[in-house]
């Protein structure tokens, strides 16, 4: 158990962090240093001003109104996933530092209850969306389009989400203990607090992090680079 936690919640996190940051940096460097096509690939109607083009790009990227029109159901699940993922990301920032105002407003108990609810909803929505995506890929008439990469990513995601939800719904460990662990990582003096180690969710943190690390390591080499690329690609649309 200790070795497992040592690998996934300490060593693995460092490795994944380095690979992720370096990999994304490399990817952006590659894009930035490849010359642009001299042919303008925009389509009409396009905004006339630079500001207009940027606003349209943000709208196209963040709301994807065209995709919503052509396949509303897919759009709904994709929205659900991405918004919930964003919410989960924001929630995880508590690992670095407790939010300033909320705990005073809600009280320590209230804060944990709120985080429990919000995180629980986000985790459930993400899980539903990923299951929908898996089903859509597996049973859709265009299933030959999918390649192993697609399923690998969905499997890793599902692992992350299920273990995250497990910690949330089954565990009794609260943010302060996780924060202690995460801050020790940030300070390069890693400790795994006993409150986690000897709890009923020690192994699920380990497994959550196993999937997270694998996802982060693969991220820069996968189609998930659309997190960044979608902005510039959508800008090309109105050039």
């Amino acid at each position: 158990m200790d070795t497992y936690l040592q690998i996934t919640t300490v060593v693995g996190v460092y490795v994944a962090g380095v690979v992720f940051v370096a990999g994304m940096g490399w990817r952006i460097y590659q894009w930035a240093t490849t010359p642009k096509s001299p042919v303008r690939l925009g389509m009409f109607p396009k905004p006339k001003t630079r500001g207009g083009r940027i606003i349209k790009m943000l709208k196209d990227t963040l709301i994807a109104p065209h995709s919503a029109r052509i396949e509303p159901r897919m759009w709904l699940f994709a929205m659900m996933f991405h918004v919930a993922a964003l919410a989960a990301f924001v929630g995880h920032l508590r690992l670095i530092q407790e939010y300033p105002i909320l705990p005073e407003l809600l009280g320590a108990e209230g804060m944990n209850a709120f985080a429990g609810w919000a995180g629980g909803i986000a985790g459930t929505l993400m899980m539903v969306a990923v299951l929908y995506w898996i089903a859509r890929r597996t049973f859709g008439p265009f299933k030959q389009l999918s390649v192993p990469e697609d399923y690998l990513l969905l499997a890793l995601l599902l692992g992350v989400i299920i273990m995250g939800n497990h910690m949330r719904f089954i565990g009794h460990v609260h943010a302060a203990d996780y924060r202690e662990w995460f801050q020790s990582l940030l300070a390069f003096k890693p400790v795994i607090p006993d409150s986690i180690r000897f709890s009923n969710v020690g192994w699920s943190l380990g497994t959550h992090m196993l999937f997270v690390n694998a996802l982060l390591i693969y991220f820069p080499f996968s189609k998930l680079v659309h997190t960044i690329g979608s902005f510039s690609a959508n800008l090309v649309r109105s050039e």
Binding site: R27, L145, V147, D150, K223, V225, A233
Partner: peptide, 22 residues
């Protein structure tokens, strides 16, 4: 023929098949 747009297109497609009905 490689250029920035092409490279991004090849890197980022999610194979979501939203384009099929278009």
């Amino acid at each position: 023929k490689m250029n920035r747009q092409l490279k991004q297109y090849l890197d980022i497609c999610a194979r979501c098949a939203i384009c099929k009905d278009a």
